[in-house]
Write a protein that binds this DNA or RNA. Structure first.
Length: 403
RNA sequence: GUGGACGUAGUUCAGUCGGUAGAGCACCAGUUUGUGGCACUGGGUGUCGCGGGUUCGAGCCCCGUCGUCCACCCCA
């Protein structure tokens, strides 16, 4: 027996229904916000992710499905969605058009990690990317959209926000932080010492208790923002207040990918185990130019589908369609043409074997059909078909032509 | 990559001191060959993850291996 690869899963029945419901709900809402669908390749040149996600992140360092294709190209299965969409935006020369562009996407992402609850090697994201809008109003709008999606899915969440500053205020802050960290270096954990070299901002994110204590006095970027970043962040909080979207400011919130700046946010659930982020995103004003496009401000997010799968409140499914069956073998073939006609409009389940009346009734229940329609001895003789509404138990016998 | 737990029927799980495997649910058939969901009766559907070892004998003990889960790391 061949099983799926480690960290990869088949979705069937209840799970696939949930998956579709999540996508359908998110798509419907994204469209209302003016987003249109974009499909980009799962396989991309490795350089794309190195330049966008960033060399310092673990995703690029050790988690990518990377290989050489038959033409000798260094390629990767996408570990996230934004890089590919940004690449497409530039490849299609949309950065040279004056109009703003908003895209939604969904599909599989791949990271070679040790699987655990809420973390798979092949997982799925629904995401949106808005290009060309520099206003913090767009940051607010995108957060409002996500909260609307979660509300529609019946998912509770905590929203955490932060500002990562811009190219003006971030670098001096980073200097400041590094020198602070250098002083307490000896007392920080092993991981933090490693992060000090690779990505010092991430040290703030350390979950180690003793590190947290030491870091409580660390300089906070939120207090060192330039005028523009500061006023934008204040505006964002004000807009969220007015819209009754609850949030907490987490000054240690750092997004894992290098391309983010200014607004960063994360939607958290405390009901799903240790991998608690159910959506994450923020502004990435520099990414397009990093990828050789015309400088274009942008903001986006992604929802982790698997992480919200069991949180979703599913709408009740109602009985639907017709169950067709016969009690005599001779009548079965008659059902087939009836089914073709009925399927123009509704769901039809056909039983190909003649069975007892009782067994058909049981099958119809199991098929969650609204109607059961049977042809037995009498009906076959008279050219009629017997129909029963399973819910209200009304039944009638009509000529087959009128069915 | 690191640490821990666990692999028995389709599924959830039980299996004592080592003596060739059992329950619920699901499934199939039947309870008047034309009135269903309920109930009742009957049916076990198994390479005990795999490979070695110990033993007269291993689901159980030992070693290895593969896999799953959980946590760390990281992230959606």
């Amino acid at each position: 027996m061949i099983n799926p690869l480690r960290g990869m899963k088949d979705l069937t029945f209840e799970e696939s229904r949930r998956y579709i419901h999540i996508i359908d709900t998110a798509v419907a809402i994204a469209k209302r916000y003016g987003y249109s669908y974009i499909e980009t390749p799962i396989l991309e040149e490795t350089a794309l992710f190195k330049r966008s996600v960033g060399n310092s992140s673990d995703i690029v360092n050790k988690e990518m499905y990377q290989f050489e294709d038959k033409g000798g190209y260094d390629v990767c299965m996408r570990p996230e969605g934004t890089a590919g969409v940004a690449r497409a935006f530039i490849s299609d020369k949309l950065d040279r058009q004056p109009i703003k562009q908003k895209f939604y996407y969904h599909g599989p992402m791949f990271r070679y990690e040790r699987p655990q609850k809420g973390r798979l090697r092949e997982f799925h994201q629904f995401g949106c990317e808005s290009f060309g809008e520099e206003s913090v109003y767009e940051d607010f709008t995108i957060i409002a959209m996500i909260s609307q999606i979660f509300d529609a899915l019946g998912i509770g969440y905590d929203l955490q926000i932060n500002s990562l500053g811009c190219s003006e205020c971030m670098p001096p802050y980073k200097q400041n932080l590094v020198s602070f960290l250098a002083d307490i270096k000896g007392d920080l954990c092993e991981d933090c010492n490693r992060r000090l070299d690779t990505n010092p901002i991430r040290v703030l994110d350390c979950k180690n208790k003793s590190c947290r204590l030491l870091l409580s006095n660390a300089p906070k970027l939120i207090n060192n923002l330039c005028n523009e970043c500061d006023s934008d962040f204040k505006k964002l909080t004000l807009l969220l207040d007015h819209a009754n979207i609850r949030y907490t400011i987490d000054t240690n919130l750092v997004r894992g990918l290098d391309y983010y700046n200014k607004t960063a946010f994360e939607f958290i659930s405390n009901e799903i185990g240790s991998q608690s982020a159910i959506a994450g995103g923020g502004r990435y004003d520099r990414l397009v130019e990093f990828l050789d496009g015309k400088p274009t401000p942008a903001v986006g997010f992604a929802i982790g589908i698997e992480r919200i799968m069991e949180l979703v409140k599913m709408p009740k499914t109602l009985p639907e369609g017709i169950y067709l069956g016969a009690m005599q073998e001779e009548a079965v073939e008659l059902l087939l043409s009836l089914a073709v006609r009925k399927r123009l409009k509704t769901k039809v389940t056909v039983e190909y074997h003649a069975r007892s009346f009782k067994s058909h009734m049981k099958n119809a229940d199991k098929a969650e059909a609204k109607y059961v329609a049977l042809i037995g001895e009498d009906e076959l003789k008279n050219g009629t078909i017997w129909i029963k509404d399973i819910e209200n138990r009304e039944e009638k016998t009509i000529p087959v032509e009128n069915f």
